[in-house]
Design a protein around this nucleic acid. Structure first.
Lengths: 335, 335
DNA sequence: TTGAAAGCGATACCAT
DNA sequence: ATGGTATCGCTTTCAA
């Protein structure tokens, strides 16, 4: 029972219809529409008129089939409303546009089932994929067949994948060092609250803390939102009232912590120093402006697009050491 | 294992290659790949193996040509990094996803030439378009032929266009009324700084001010950014030091004004009341939280997608009175 | 300048 | 269960 009970009368207008209406052949129509010069002015005009009259629009599929030039990449993002991903997406769009590529954006709303759904349909819509994925690698593989894929912020095992590494080790180390230099010894962390696996950022923090002889155990989980950050800070301070500085999983959480600190009557940075992670532009609007271990999101997006491009064209892919974005401490008012 | 499998020959792997490699016909390959049941297990497996071996991926164009089911819409946004447009985009993506549609996103970076470039290529990539445009209507028309188009926040003349109206009149009136009720009589506005045409929001402000017997002339222009808002506020206060309340073109500008007020030593809302426009989620993170004439961006995106869908399928388009998003005053701490 | 015919790569409808 | 053939809508040779 194939066809939807669509507007029967309005069957698609094809190049053939235009040709018949203008009393020429299909090729002539094609010429007129594509601005070729081997055509008489009057003929061209007649065709153009007929086309407009009939409301003709070329089928992108038919056209794409014969002129194999357009590239479209898929960008998969967990949550476009999260400013971090917004920045990454915007950067990816920029890079793609510079190459004349089109980008289909999929927001998986942080839901695994949406991610799978996306993976299933994406294969028949784009030439390559860039983005964030949470599902198991073999699932990724199964759903995307031979598609070039660049994973952001996640390691891969299979050779067919490529990934952009986020290296925050030095940046987090610098952050902790800075706090220590300011006299802090009780430094806590607000990690994400997905306890399935500890975050890399947590590991970096732990290592950096230990390197400075600081107890890395003052950690609380926080939902990925400002509210989550606020609640997380409350929990952290309840469990460890001695904490005077906090490093957070990301800037959104840090911003929530900032707000919560204010509500608790703790001055920042005097009573509580806060350092986030990501380096969102948003942080500069806070009071005080947020210090953060900053990522160059522009480079991140550009790198991902560049790499998927290389996979696409068969050019030499960038080597792993170039596929790395280093985060560095950017101090503002909050610490 | 995978080291040898390279896309050495530049020619595309087609269904034909897979068929030959597996020793079956093309249709059988199609069956195997699309999970039809009229096929023997062993055959299917053989085909699948061959496909994987060759790195075969079906052409989306060929597939789209024969199964005319996928719809793709284009979303044109002036600046994805602007939180307002982020919200609209996210909402549009949500609505599209709910319908199983794909969305190609174009960020025109606020540049007219990018907008034209986008219009030119968009025609052959999507079935319909939703978004923000700044160019003249006849240009819009010329570049997009018979494509269904929904313009957001902008009126149209030609019948082929459809548009979503932003109605902030009542909301702005309420904002001014609120300020007046709080005793403010010297109310300024930070408009956008594109002096080509006064903004609708400015007109609403003027009308509301006059209705309350307030001089609507205390206006300064501001760039569309927090920094612009800060500079704008400085300019406004320099020209009109008596101002005690300010309504801004949008929330980003308002946020900049908030920050600038703090720097100038003006307490908000005590010394200076601020009301923005848009109702960004971001506003809630400010100190104090931003009062704003809020737009339901979710509805905005949903409406645009719904309408382009109707135009696409030939269903009855929504009537103009339904294509309207009303802004309403949402009070927080800043006024 | 124009037209006829041959694909582009896949699926669907019949045969077998 | 499998294969032939027509077809989707368009562009590209190649003739006329």
């Amino acid at each position: 029972m194939a066809s939807s009970s669509g507007p029967d009368s309005s069957r698609r207008v094809t190049i053939h219809d235009v040709a018949r209406s203008a009393g020429v052949s299909r090729q002539t129509v094609s010429r007129a529409l594509n601005g070729k010069d081997e055509i008489e002015r009057s003929t061209k005009q007649r065709v153009l008129d007929a086309a407009r009259e009939l409301g003709y629009r070329p089928s992108r599929f038919a056209r794409g089939l014969v002129r194999q030039d357009t590239t479209t990449i898929g960008l998969v993002i967990p949550d476009l409303r999260n400013p971090f991903f917004t920045e990454v997406a915007a950067s990816a769009l920029e890079s793609a546009r510079a190459r004349g590529w089109h980008v289909v954006v999929y927001d998986t709303a942080d839901r695994p089932e949406e991610e799978l759904g996306t993976l299933q349909v994406i294969g028949s819509q784009v030439d390559g994929v860039v983005g964030y994925f949470s599902c198991a690698e073999d699932e990724l593989d199964r759903y995307t067949r031979g598609m070039p894929m660049v994973l952001i912020g996640r390691e891969h095992r299979m050779a067919r994948f490529s990934s952009i590494r986020i290296d925050g080790e030095a940046g987090v180390h610098a952050a902790v060092a800075h706090l220590v230099a300011r006299g802090h010894t009780m430094i806590g962390m607000l990690d994400h609250d997905n306890r399935a696996e500890p975050s890399l950022r947590r590991e970096w923090f732990t290592a950096a803390a230990l390197a400075h002889g600081i107890d890395p155990g003052r950690v609380a989980g926080a939902g990925q939102s400002a509210d989550g950050g606020g609640a997380g800070l409350r929990a952290l301070l309840a469990a460890h009232p001695e904490v005077t500085a906090v490093f957070t999983f990301n800037d959104i959480v840090a911003i929530g912590a900032l707000r919560e600190a204010r509500r608790l009557g703790r001055a920042v940075p005097a009573d509580l120093a806060v350092i986030g992670f990501d380096g969102l532009q948003l942080g500069a609007l806070m009071e005080p402006p947020l210090s953060s271990v900053a990522l160059d999101t522009r480079r991140l997006g550009a790198l991902a697009v560049e790499q998927v491009g290389r996979l696409l064209t068969g050019a030499d892919p960038l080597p792993p050491e170039d596929l790395e974005v280093r985060a560095e401490l950017r101090l503002a008012g909050s610490a």
